[in-house]
Design a protein around this nucleic acid. Structure first.
Lengths: 222, 222
DNA sequence: TATCTGAAAATTGTCAACATTTTAAATAGT
DNA sequence: ACTATTTAAAATGTTGACAATTTTCAGATA
């Protein structure tokens, strides 16, 4: 029957709910998480909660210490470490995308870029631009057509986002990478894989520089 | 009390057991896995089994299709894709190790190399050499002192090993990278991070070449 | 005051039962 | 023979109960 949807199983919903809550800082870095607590909060039994927690642990977002579970509490060093990994894999994605993208893909990427241009021109809220940033990078990742890379980058992404949040506190990043995105899009659309790779390396480095700046500001206020 | 150990919880044991079984081809690529089956086999209830399965799924070793679970059935392309990732991260590990290793580390790495030299010289069984290969690379990873990288590389490693197994069938790889390991060890011990990185890139490429060869032989026999 | 001790409370570990959904098989109708 | 339809079997989804640990904390002891 059309339009009939079946609900996702609880462990999946719990998994997503927790991920979301982490970004919303409902659970804070270093905070202890208990099965019972989560089960009460979501009003489901502990079974599915456990499954969700195991998934989060494999992702590295939850950390186990003895028999207790805590929200991953990243150090500044962790963020730097992660960016080192990002700096290797993200450019690979760009390179592969430039090699493997087809005409439809080029169109899609250009449309995405337009969306961002508009969003920036009309001074839309930070959230919207952040969302588009993610979508833009996701698109490139998809066009890389490398399933393994996609898998790892997804892990890195969710961790990056979480870490930025965790380390930067209430700071509101308003990152505009318009020029960089334009250049990257152009390189990919021209199938210039080397250039795409170089530009992406540069982009990750700039992104890291900004993180460092924000971090220094955020910490000296305390 | 000394010597008193408490058993690991069932989901951990199940997780390890399954990983091991995958390498031993007890469960074959593409094979369907049921909770009930595993629960009966390990003679425990389905709860812990589910947790272990969720972990394996996050690792990418189990794959879900609808409500059914299958052992990851890697294509040759998957292997190539994975090596592309490996080629980026493994050299990073070598580079960082060259930068961050201390005197104790250098000693440890040299000892490891000696072990391998002996093992090869005395024509020990393939399994022993393979084990040492892994340990050697693990050591470098540890010395990189980058926790994030360690986490991702572990994922890549277990997947690589599994894939090789899955794709190569009964083929018995007897890979000796002695010369390469000597060079890498030297570079790291001299803190020459650029050289260490380059050598490791080369090494991963050689490794990939061998995989390709083995694969072609393995497939044309069918 | 410091620390030892031993309930009491909280939390994780495990299971078995039951509900729901999915898959496979058997039957019947064309 | 082919394909619906029904039924049975198997698997997953979810829960509540209970066991085993771990933590917490008040009171006892030095």
């Amino acid at each position: 029957m059309a339009g009939i949807i079946k609900a996702e199983s609880y462990h999946i919903q719990a998994y997503k709910y927790i991920q979301k809550s982490l970004l919303e800082k409902k659970y804070k870095p270093g905070e202890q998480i208990t099965e019972v607590g989560l089960a009460n909060e979501l009003e489901i039994s502990r079974g599915p909660i456990r499954e969700a927690m195991r998934m989060l642990m494999q992702d590295g977002l939850f950390v186990q210490n003895g028999s207790r579970t805590f929200v991953f509490n990243p150090s500044y060093q962790d963020a730097l470490d992660l960016y080192l990994c990002k700096e290797r894999l993200e450019p690979l994605a760009a390179k592969l995308a430039a090699k493997n993208i087809d005409e439809d893909g080029k169109m899609e990427l250009s449309n995405m870029l337009d969306k961002i241009e508009n969003s920036v021109a009309n001074e839309q809220p930070v959230e919207e631009i952040t969302t588009y940033n993610t979508e833009f990078n996701d698109l490139i990742l998809t066009f890389s057509k490398n399933d393994q890379l996609i898998h790892f980058m997804n892990l890195i992404r969710s961790k990056t986002i979480y870490m930025r949040n965790a380390l930067l506190g209430e700071v509101n990043r308003r990152d505009v990478f318009l020029e960089e995105y334009r250049a990257i899009t152009a390189a990919i659309n021209q199938n210039d894989d080397c250039l795409a790779e170089q530009l992406m390396i540069k982009h990750v480095e700039v992104d890291l520089e900004m993180l460092k700046q924000y971090f220094e500001n955020a910490t000296e206020e305390e």
